[in-house]
Simulated scan of single mutants.
Amino acid sequence: MYEINLSRCIFCGYCEVACPFDAITMGHDFEMSDYHRSDLIFTKEMLLAEPLERTPLRAEGE
């Protein structure tokens, strides 16, 4: 199971350096707060981006 637990993160940037695909990037958002610790845990499914809508080069049957 893959998850990022921001309540344990010290924002050192090691995960950003170690990621071979530049999928993890550190931004300038540093005031991340919540009322429940469980809301600071992100799973793989929560982090996946929506698929891009692609326009076909040709219409079907051409």
Rank of each mutant, 00 (worst) to 15 (best):
A23C: 14
L40T: 02
V17I: 13
C19D: 09
M1Y: 02
S33G: 13
P51A: 10
E50F: 12
H28V: 12
P20Y: 00
E45F: 01
S7K: 06
H36D: 15
A49S: 14
R8L: 12
T55D: 07
T25C: 13
T55W: 07
C15K: 06
P56V: 02
E50G: 11
Y2T: 01
E62S: 04
Y14K: 14
E16S: 12
D22P: 04
E62C: 02
C19M: 07
S38L: 11
R8N: 12
D29P: 00
Y14E: 13
L52I: 11
T25I: 14
R37D: 15
K44Y: 08
D39M: 11
S33K: 13
C9M: 02
I4W: 04
L6T: 02
E3T: 03
G13F: 08
D29H: 03
K44H: 07
P51C: 06
G13W: 10
F21C: 07
C9F: 01
H28Y: 10
P51F: 05
E53K: 15
I10N: 09
E45L: 03
L40G: 06
P56C: 02
A59C: 05
C12W: 05
Y2G: 00
I10R: 08
Y2H: 01
M46H: 07
L47H: 00
A49R: 15
C9K: 02
F30I: 09
M46I: 03
M32L: 13
I24C: 08
M26E: 10
I24R: 08
S33C: 09
E60M: 04
N5M: 00
P51I: 04
M1D: 05
C19N: 05
L48M: 14
E62L: 04
R37I: 12
L47M: 12
C15R: 06
R8Y: 05
T43I: 00
S33A: 11
T43N: 03
R58E: 03
I41S: 05
H28D: 13
M26L: 15
F11V: 08
